[in-house]
Amino acid sequence: MVDLTVDVGSLRLKNPIMPASGTFSEDLADVFDLDLLGAHVTKTITRGWRDGNPTPRVCEVSGSMLNSIGIPSKGVGYFIERVIPFYKRYETPLVVSISGNTADEFATLCSEVSVDGVAAIEVNISCPNIEEDGKAFAIRPSSTFDVMTKLRKATHLPLWAKLTPNTGETPEVARAAEDAGADALVVANTILAMAIDINTRRPKLGNLMGGLSGPSLKPIALRMAYQCARATKIPVIGCGGISSVEDVLEFLIAGATAVQVGTATFINPLAMPRIIDELAAWLARHGYSSVKDVIGSVIDDEQKAGVVFMEAAP
């Protein structure tokens, strides 16, 4: 029997597989027993009501997809009254994803969702900060440090910072989050992208641009997860295009402690439970007694920091 448990800071997970925010909800309980998962991660909520973006909100690109949903939210009251109680039937820890337009609004929400039934808070600092020209908090180390400092003061629960690939300063942003008290890094969100219908000449998304997710994103997210694992001492949770057990292993070897599966669930709703089974089987087949033995086992021959942390292709 292979030990699949991992520790994300103080939080022990029965296995390293969890959903990515926005690709999971109570609705998936119609397909399989959600207690099989290592953690439950809810879709990002905001404090108040948000309608979300105009349709089309999704389009397909070669082997991947773009989305621009716009964080529709029923607000924090509905979430606390209706969503959190739903998850209390499960043993699996609940991770709540939140977002805010300003650092103060973000911190207020962080404090409001620090309630019984919530095991950790994932802060989606990849969302636009309206106080900084709409640039996401996690694009710059300084705005990352400022918002994470306020969020840290707002809760006693573990704080996971979800980073964005739309930055040229991944290691610096990761260190800023760590310095401000983040307990873990989720690496990463979707990358800003676009698609145009050549016949109508209109962008394929109602919001013109949106986030790329799926297999095309994976090498970028893997590179970032590796950099973040090298740059910080806090656990990294890999996220981006993970669709198979091989993808999971790649992230674990790069230094991720756990992973999030997102878009793959849209294609195969049973992707997560299948990957958990296949991970146990792969580890057993290769003689490992614990998944922890694989984490960070990348053989990179201690390359110079200048190479590991480069932000441009050589």
Binding site: G22, T23, F24, S25, D27, L28, D30, V31, K43, G52, T55, P56, R57, V58, M65, N67, I69, P72, T265, F266, P269
Partner: peptide
């Protein structure tokens, strides 16, 4: 996208 209600695309 998902068909189950998770993604809010439709």
């Amino acid at each position: 996208a998902c068909g189950l209600g998770m993604c809010h695309c439709c």
